[in-house]
Amino acid sequence: MEQPPPTTYLVNGAAIRTRRKDLGMDLAECAATAHISRAYLNQLELGLRRHMKPPTYHRLRTALRIEPPDRRLLAPNEDPHRKE
């Protein structure tokens, strides 16, 4: 039986920041590309916010050029067997 889509993704802020910097993107550029606020992205990177709704997570993943099934933006305890 297929699992329902997750209500939120638990993300790893350090991984988000590392990937953004590896791509040479500043905070404002990445946030604009992902259609999220700069403040929200900063909170994610600092670990002040850790949960993202699926559409927001997918936009951020796209902005950071990460294709499924790559799960590097997810927190280590996120269920690796869940389908996207």
Results as ranks from 00 to 15, higher is better:
H35M: 07
R72I: 13
L27V: 08
A14H: 13
P5Q: 15
I16D: 04
A15D: 08
P76R: 10
T33L: 12
G47I: 08
R59G: 01
T33A: 11
M1P: 13
V11N: 11
N77L: 14
D70F: 02
L48C: 01
L27W: 07
A31Q: 04
E67G: 00
H35D: 10
P5F: 15
T18D: 13
R38G: 00
I36C: 09
A39Q: 11
M52C: 06
V11A: 10
R19H: 03
M25G: 00
D70H: 05
P54S: 02
L46G: 09
T7A: 12
L10W: 14
P55E: 11
A63Q: 10
H51S: 11
Q43F: 11
K53Y: 06
R65L: 09
V11M: 10
D26C: 01
T18L: 12
P6K: 12
R59E: 08
E84Y: 13
L73A: 05
P68I: 09
L73C: 06
M52R: 05
V11F: 12
T62E: 15
M52V: 11
A31D: 03
R38M: 09
R17A: 14
R17V: 03
K83I: 14
R19I: 03
E78N: 03
R50Q: 13
K53Q: 09
R65D: 07
D70L: 03
L44H: 09
G13F: 15
I16S: 06
T62G: 02
P55V: 08
I36V: 12
T7L: 15
L41C: 06
L48E: 12
G24D: 03
H81F: 07
E2M: 15
L60H: 04
R17M: 07
N12F: 14
P68D: 07
L27C: 02
E67P: 01
L64T: 10
R61V: 06
Y40H: 11
L48S: 04
H51A: 13
R65N: 12
E45T: 02
N77V: 11
I66R: 07
A31I: 02
S37G: 09
P4K: 14
D26E: 00
A75C: 03
N77I: 11
L74C: 07
R19M: 05
H35A: 12
P55W: 11
L64P: 05
G47T: 09
H81S: 04
Y57T: 06
V11P: 05
R20Y: 04
H35C: 03
I36L: 08
R38W: 05
L60K: 04
